[in-house]
Amino acid sequence: MDLFSDIPLTLPDAELRYEPNFLSPEEANGWMERLCAETPWEQPQVFLHGRYYPVPRLVTWYGDPEASYCYSGLTHQPLPWTPLLVLVRDRVQGAVGQPFNGVLLNYYRDGQDSMGWHSDDEPELGPNPVVASLNLGGTRRFDLRRKGSTRIEHSLDLANGSLLVMAGPTQHYWQHQVAKIRSVCAPRLNLTFRWIRQ
């Protein structure tokens, strides 16, 4: 049985699968509470246009010892997997059919925390990376646009307990973002599982 067969997301030059009820609300809420409490959150700074700016969210990188990850000019050395993150990873791997050796945790405290336009196309992810995104807590809008375009082509509300998988050529042709919003929203925790190549 294909977990994602009943919800196709058809965009050209992309392979997207979405499962809105991957976790029950009770399980998602429990994982959210524990992960927010147990994670040693960081807010690194990035250098843009001659100035340093704090990343507009809190982040932490976990993974196998060799799975260091570089993005936005920052190199993240992995923290060792916790028992809870091993459990979460095993559930995601079982659903996706793909091993993962690292996970980036992004904590959006409110609507002003965000993620700018980007593609997950760092060299260590390989040519056609599989990125599995598990969403806990508040619902946030996930936007997609063609590389080189300024127009949003597709948006998806990523709800509590949902799983989004991006694979195939998606990162070659598409960018994604989680934009700032003015309305009040609950905190959101996003876990993006990846395979870091050596």
Rank of each mutant, 00 (worst) to 15 (best):
M166T: 08
P78S: 08
V86M: 11
G116L: 06
L58C: 09
W81V: 04
D90Q: 15
L74N: 02
G102V: 08
V131G: 01
V86L: 15
S119W: 11
E153H: 10
Q171C: 09
V55Y: 07
F100T: 03
M166K: 08
A159T: 15
L84Q: 14
N101K: 07
V103I: 12
S133D: 01
N101R: 09
L134D: 01
N135S: 15
N128K: 12
W61G: 02
H118V: 04
R89T: 06
V86Q: 15
L105D: 06
P83R: 09
L104H: 08
P123Q: 11
D110W: 00
N106V: 02
Y52Q: 14
V165C: 03
Q112G: 13
V46W: 05
V92K: 04
T139C: 13
S183V: 12
P169F: 06
R109I: 04
V184I: 14
V86W: 02
L134K: 03
Y107W: 15
N106D: 06
V178K: 01
H176S: 07
K147M: 02
D113N: 11
C70H: 14
S149Y: 06
A159I: 12
G148C: 12
W117S: 09
L104A: 12
Y52V: 07
L87G: 11
W61A: 05
D120N: 11
E66R: 13
R57F: 11
P99G: 12
P83T: 11
V88Q: 09
D110I: 03
S72L: 11
F100D: 03
L79F: 15
Q45L: 07
W61F: 08
G50K: 11
Y52R: 14
T170D: 07
H76W: 14
P54W: 08
P54R: 12
G126H: 06
G63Q: 09
S149N: 07
L79S: 12
H154T: 05
P129E: 01
H154E: 05
A186I: 00
I181D: 01
L58A: 10
G111F: 04
V55C: 01
R109D: 05
A132M: 02
C185L: 12
N101G: 10
H76R: 11
S162Q: 09
A186K: 14
L156Q: 12
V184E: 15
D157L: 14
L158S: 05
L104G: 08
L136E: 01
R140D: 02
Y62E: 10
P83G: 04
Y69D: 00
G137P: 08
N128Q: 15
A95P: 08
V86A: 13
A132T: 02
M115V: 14
H176I: 01
V92F: 05
D110R: 10
Q177P: 04
D110G: 10
D121F: 09
F47N: 13
C70F: 06
D143N: 10
Q77G: 00
L105E: 04
G137C: 07
L48R: 13
H154C: 09
W81A: 07
S183M: 12
N160F: 02
L136V: 02
G168N: 07
D64M: 05
Q171F: 13
W61R: 04
L164E: 04
R140M: 04
W174V: 01
Q177F: 00
Q93C: 14
D90V: 01
L158A: 08
L158E: 08
A159F: 00
P78E: 04
V59G: 04
